[in-house]
Design a protein around this nucleic acid. Structure first.
Lengths: 216, 216
DNA sequence: TAGATTGTTAATCGATTAACAATC
DNA sequence: TAGATTGTTAATCGATTAACAATC
């Protein structure tokens, strides 16, 4: 389900996912004025195995000092660079319904240098409406607008029926990676990376775990 | 990151995730009036390996006829039963901001027999406000309300700072599994199953894949 | 120096996929 | 019966974790 990792050589996806967790954790440590941290501390505080933490980092170079640990600020900066969120990253959101609006207003994004540069919809009632700092634009103008803003990341929040079409448009407009919230499997060229988020899937896995007992 | 799978014996989590995908796919097939499907067809249409499809199902019994394939309606019903979404499943949503509201209005939920039975917030300005078919309730009343509705699933959509407290409350109120949208690692008893959805993590993984070239 | 902790190699574990006898 | 496709075993692949020499 985790899609076309056509690109880069051999960093496991789970490692990349954890990298984002480490970054968040390091930001909290910075706020708590912690200067140095060891892999054992990481394990104690996040539950992620210390060897795994070191292994994850080892894909990208050497980050720590034997006998000492890792400098919080330096590690933070280096992980941000690896994840390419060391500079503002423009994103387009397609679909300005409830979910799209929630994302546009999500405060964590800016904190992590993600910047929603444009939001689109095809509903004439929504086009032109202000939304956060943005104005909803016409979906028909995706390509034109993206020639300006140069987003390489698209977030698709339209209904399943429209998702494939919208993905095609985004790709034509120069998007290279897609976060897809529509419950369908997008067909995209090899070079495009897609990640799917499915609330239904998450809930289904949880629901399964409601074993026998007190169903009320 | 995938949390406390304390419960059931040995079905891999990825298998459960795919089960939800199969279910969705089977619903589409039903709509298209397809009666029977083989594992090879599944592979062709979803990209999921045929052997994997059969293996996934094999954890739960026998579903197909050699030489023939699987009956779409029967398989659909049996997967729904496995995932415990063959009957209405009540859910509580805590946090009625943008994201919570998006979930309350999400049409796919009902289709899959998930029912948001109550939504809570602690903001006095929100309490009492209508939202879809619901009225936002006071977060302080979670326990009392859940004695009525009996939700075993909670969706947490509050800011990071409030998430742990809210999770504790939900667990006290009888919740057994949690879908957590707050970007923190919840500390919960062994028996509680948590799944985390992190937009930042998803975006970070995608951002990583924006290799070198045209950063514009 | 002695103690702590790294980065990395090797061992373990688990999930995916190929192969095939059983069966419709 | 011959052809197709299942369910399952065995082989492969990849990710996690333990162990330890190198290093601060």
């Amino acid at each position: 389900m985790n899609s076309n990792s056509s690109s880069s050589p051999k960093v496991p996806i789970p490692t990349l996912e954890r990298l984002a967790t480490y970054l968040r954790f390091l930001i909290d440590l910075e706020a708590a004025q912690v200067e140095t941290i060891s892999s054992t501390d990481v394990e104690k505080q996040t539950g992620i195995n210390a060897a795994q933490f070191r292994k994850d980092l080892s894909y990208f170079g050497e980050f720590g000092k034997p006998g000492v640990g890792y400098n919080v600020l330096e590690l933070q900066a280096r992980i941000a660079r690896i994840l390419k969120i060391d500079q503002l990253q423009p994103i387009m959101v397609i679909g300005a319904g409830n979910l799209g609006s929630a994302l546009i207003g999500y405060p964590g994004l800016t904190e992590h240098k993600f910047h929603i540069a444009a939001a689109f919809d095809r509903d004439p009632a929504k086009i032109g409406r202000p939304q956060g700092d943005l104005v909803i634009l016409n979906e028909a103008d995706v390509r034109e607008v993206n020639a300006e803003i140069g987003a390489r990341i698209a977030i698709i929040c339209v209904p399943a029926a429209a998702a494939q079409e919208v993905a095609d448009t985004a790709i034509l407009a120069g998007v290279r990676v897609i976060l897809n919230f529509a419950p369908i499997i997008l067909k995209v060229p090899e070079r495009i990376v897609v990640r799917n988020v499915s609330f239904l899937q998450e809930l289904a896995v949880l629901s399964y775990h409601l074993s026998g007992e007190s169903q009320k």
